[in-house]
């Protein structure tokens, strides 16, 4: 009998060591999954405070309002993985939206206008990449410069006028769904999934990570690091162009003087997600969770009718808290 007990104790011990318990004791686990854990905690708190939070209608709304941020954060992820940063997003987004509006209202048709918007964003990304990799200008400075330039260009090209874009296609894009799944966030989630696969399953993604992780070593191994850095800014720019299409679909028009707060939230999402600002780490799942955390905060505060003045404070505190947690990273 005594022997039997002994055996059963040993078994429990084995189960414990392979289960989730040791993971929970490892601080690295918390650091690596800060954004996902944060999302669960914040979601739990809001669903206790209001019954409306955990309804499909609200979750769906939340995902729709997170979609543009998701695409921009994925764009930002590419720049940040190489140790760079893209501040020009806030100028590129209105610029690509204006190009889209001008093209469509000029009669070019929806398909061509979408391509024009994406190319407009790509062009800005390519200039960023060339200035950074070829002229050896620091990423922060180069994209800060482009932020100003593109804000101005958007105003000049549109003559400072905002205009509406009326299209059934865009309405369907903004409001339509496959069953309960809205196209709007489906597109955003597919893009994030694509980015995740690029980093985990392609040679290109591996070379981008290597470029961000240790530029000198990557160069020694024969990776064309300059081309990698240009490539990420091109992808980044193309995604911003796509985000501009979503923005026009959602707001029904383009506004050249749009002052978007999504530059800072896109950077915050990536940092929340656990990617290092020094480069070399891509945590796309974390970035998605990060963008959802920030959007959930706004959504929950709105449901609880908390004054919007408190929202930026909460966002700021969450970002700093996440940065503290990420110091535990493995």
């Amino acid at each position: 009998m005594a022997r039997r007990n002994y055996v059963s104790i040993v078994k429990t011990e084995t189960l414990k060591s392979t289960g989730i318990a040791p993971k929970l004791r490892d601080p690295g686990f918390w650091g690596d999954n800060a954004a996902v854990i944060g999302l669960i905690v914040i979601g739990a708190i809001f669903s206790m405070l209001t019954p409306y939070f955990l309804t499909w209608a609200n979750i769906s709304d939340l995902l729709v309002s997170a979609s543009i941020l998701l695409v921009l954060a994925t764009a930002q992820q590419f720049a940040i993985v190489t140790g760079g940063i893209d501040l020009s997003i806030a100028g590129n987004l209105p610029w690509a939206a204006v190009v889209f509006g001008l093209a469509y209202n000029g009669g070019l048709g929806m398909g061509v206008s979408i391509i024009a918007a994406i190319l407009a964003g790509t062009l800005v990304g390519a200039v960023n990449g060339l200035v950074i990799a070829k002229l050896k200008v620091n990423d922060f400075i180069a994209t800060l410069g482009m932020l100003g330039v593109m804000n101005g260009v958007a105003l000049i090209v549109s003559d400072g006028q905002s205009f509406s874009v009326n299209s059934h296609f865009l309405q369907a894009l903004a409001l339509g769904s496959i069953g309960p799944v809205r196209y709007f966030y489906l597109i955003a989630l597919l893009i994030a999934a694509g980015a995740h696969l690029v980093f985990t399953h392609t040679a290109f993604g591996t070379h981008v990570l290597a470029t961000g992780g240790n530029r000198e070593a990557a160069r020694n191994m024969g990776i064309p690091v300059s081309r990698m850095r240009i490539a990420v800014y091109i992808i980044d720019g193309a995604l911003v162009g796509l985000a501009a299409v979503l923005l026009v679909a959602r707001t029904g028009g383009s506004d050249p003087s749009l002052q978007t707060s999504e530059l800072l939230t896109s950077i915050a999402s990536v940092v929340l997600g656990g990617s290092s600002l020094f480069g070399g780490r891509a945590a796309v799942v974390g970035t998605v969770a990060g963008a959802l955390v920030l959007t959930t905060l706004l959504n929950g505060f709105t449901l609880l009718q908390v004054s919007e003045f408190y929202q930026p404070i909460a966002v700021g505190i969450v970002v700093i808290a996440a940065a503290v947690l990420s110091r535990l990273q493995r």
Binding site: T206, H207, N214, E216, N220, R281
Partner: peptide, 18 residues
């Protein structure tokens, strides 16, 4: 002496880098 290894990549990824 700097080994040209990428710290944030796995052993196999470094082995097959490029």
């Amino acid at each position: 002496q700097d080994l040209a290894l990428i710290e944030d990549l796995a052993v196999w990824q470094n082995m097959y880098l490029n």
